[in-house]
Each structure stands twice: as structure tokens, then as C-alpha cells.
Design a protein around this nucleic acid. Sequence first.
DNA 1: ACCTGAACACCGTTCAAGT
DNA 2: ACCTGAACACCGTTCAAGT
Lengths: 219, 219
Amino acid sequence: MAARRKATGRPRRRRKQDDQATRVGPSAAPANGSALSDREIVRGARELVAEVGVDGLTMRRLSTKLGVALGATYHHVPTKRDLLLLVAHDLYGEVVVPKKGTWDQRIKKLMVDVADMVSRYPGLAAFMSANADDSMPVELRRAVTEILANAGFGRRDINAVRAALFFYLTGMSSGSVTPASTRALTSVDIHRLFEDGLDILLAGARVRLEASQRGKRSR
Amino acid sequence: MAARRKATGRPRRRRKQDDQATRVGPSAAPANGSALSDREIVRGARELVAEVGVDGLTMRRLSTKLGVALGATYHHVPTKRDLLLLVAHDLYGEVVVPKKGTWDQRIKKLMVDVADMVSRYPGLAAFMSANADDSMPVELRRAVTEILANAGFGRRDINAVRAALFFYLTGMSSGSVTPASTRALTSVDIHRLFEDGLDILLAGARVRLEASQRGKRSR
DNA sequence: ACCTGAACACCGTTCAAGT
DNA sequence: ACCTGAACACCGTTCAAGT
């Protein structure tokens, strides 16, 4: 039977009266007198997704976690979809772009890091691939583009390789949302498979690069 | 305002009393006296997914379309997830494996065909990548494996290439579930991008194949 | 056995009413 | 302006009751 908690004793709104107003970063604190900040909501949502997945994240559940009524959350965020977009963006903001190594080593490390990160937020990869237009994060996009451009890829090849990498990434990390499927592949298997496929993809990109350089030389 | 149809005049169950009992294929007809066959349900669900997508497919909506009560559908199919699995399997049963051309031409044609097919069922690719353990159809898996084996790929490379292709396929076709995103990429762009990425992936696979053959020769 | 239709326990979203 | 809490229009799933 599922744990059923009564509303009794549930902590109500903490007014964070003991929060020093010293650290007021760029929109870090509410800035106005409002008790609930957008940042607070996104952080709460992100934690919730990590714990219970995208499907488990409920506007009601989030509101309870934040200690406010349902309407309060909706006052700050128009829709669950927008909220998840904010979460995804928040996440990708933390991606570190590798600076050392050859172009393919850098791409590989970047992709593996992103895959590891995203895999800790069940259902988010699936959501993102379904909303690719808006949530393919600019930071990641720019990072990949830069690495490929520096390696000597032409504009068209950059687009193709970048798209292939992104599709591969989301296709891979969309899997195993259901915790029920324990029997299939271990996470070690998946990780190995992911790297193997990445190597194949990058080998293909290398062929493309060499072909275009050969073409340039003989032109 | 959304169209709101009253229950008035909605066609109730057709008992198909005018159905000749002549054509009784392998479980084609109910066989027993039951009015609702599993096949009928899957076909109805498939049509519904084509029309309104996976999210638009509702157990209630499907029941209405079939002319039965909600409980009747649930009597045949335990869960919406299982229903979608059946739909996916039904779909993949129609995949034609290309017989002509080099191994990479055959793989490419197969993948493009599957992508085209799946793209006509919005949300199904996303569902499948989230349920990959159960819905990666055996037919497709076997087809890819056979083509690669005939081309001379080793067992491990077959696994890697097959997985890469499948992840790429689902990652790609999970996109654009929301009809709202009209502004981004046209379907022509997507198609071109898909083929481009496929070429890169297959070029990488070719490198792998040549490397293993070189290794074999010098051994 | 097969089916009906109501009920249960949820959702996302809206909104009048309060402060 | 910001928040509350009830309400609306749905879901998937279950189940006593009918035939």
C-alpha cells in the first residue's frame, strides 16, 4: 500500500525571516518582497525530477515541497512544460566544455558528461527530445559548434555532425525511464554501448573532415 | 471554444450481424462469440495514434471509437502501455527489409523507411525509446543484424552499430511531437538532416569494418 | 466470459476571493 | 502584486453488477 500522509504536521510556509539580505546576486533573491522566487521554484522542480522523474513531478507536489498553494506556483510559471524547459536550461548551464585534447576527444568527453548528467533526471531527456526546438540548449550547441569549427569542419558538416550527435544523445538517454525494466541492460552496459556508438559516429565525422580537406587541397 | 458533442446520436455498438463468417483467418475474427477482438482494438488504437498522437489516444476515446464501454477495452488490454506496445509491434510487422544493394545502402533504406513510418504516428517513437526493452521490435533487430553479419561485421561491432542506429533513429524521430513548433525545421530539413547523420554513422561503421578486416588479414 | 457504467484517485489549469 | 483554495475538465484504472 502506498504511503499516505495526512496533511497534519506538514510544514507550512517558511518565511525565511532569518535570511540575511546580504547576498543579492543577479536576481538571486526575490528582490521584491515576494516570498517565492522563480529560482526557488526551478531548484525545487529540479530536485523533484531527480527524485521522482518528470512524470512524478506534479505541480501540486512541487507546491507542497515549496510550502505554497498550487496557485502560487502557477503565478510564477505558466505551465509545466515551461517549468521543465527552465529546469533543462538550468541543468545545461552547468555543462563544462572540455578544453584539452583533440577535437574528437573533446566532443566525446562533452557528450559523455552531458549523458551522465541528464541520466540523473529521469524522463528529462525524453521531454527534451520531444521539445527539441526550445530546449536544445544554446550553450551546448555553441560548444559543439566551436569545437568542430576549430577542427576545420565546414559549415554544412558542422550542422550535420551536431544534429547527429544531439539525436544520438537524446535517443540514447531517453531509454529506461521506467524503473520496472531492471532485467534488461545494466547501466554499465549502457555506458559502454553509448561510448561505442559515439566512437562510430566520430569516426564517420573524421572521414567527412578528411574528405573535405582533400577536396580543398585539390581545388 | 472546443467542439462539444453530446452523446445524442452517437452510433452505438454495431454488432456486425452482416459480417459473413466465411473469412476466418488465423485469429483474424473473434473466433469465439465475443464482439470485440484484440485485433480490432489494436487497429483502432493505431488509427487513433495516427490521428491524434499517443497523448491524444485515450482509453475512453478508443472505446467510443470501437463502440464499446470503457471496461470492455480494459477487458482485452490490461493497460495503455501494453496497448501501445501492441501498436508498435503491429507497425513494425510491416517493415520490408531491403534485399538489393550494398550493406550500407540497405541499412540506410531500412532506417529511412522506418523513420518515415514511425513519423506518421506522433509520440510513438518517444514512447518506444522510453520502453526500448520491450518495443525494440525483433523483426527490425534481426534485419539489421543479418545485413551487418553478411557484410562481415564481427559480433561486437554488430551490437555497437545496431545500438547506435537504434538510438539515432529514436532520438531523431522523437522530436516535433508538439504541433505547436511549426516555426523551427520543415520536414524536408529534418529528412535531409536525418540522412546526413545516417551517412556519417554508416561511414563510421565502414571504418570499423575495414579495421577489423585489416586486423584479420595481418593476424 | 464478456460487457456496462459508475466510481476512485489522481492530473494540469483556471479563477474568484482574499491580503 | 502575490497568494489561497476550490473548482473544472479531464486522465488511467478498477469493479460491482448485469447478460
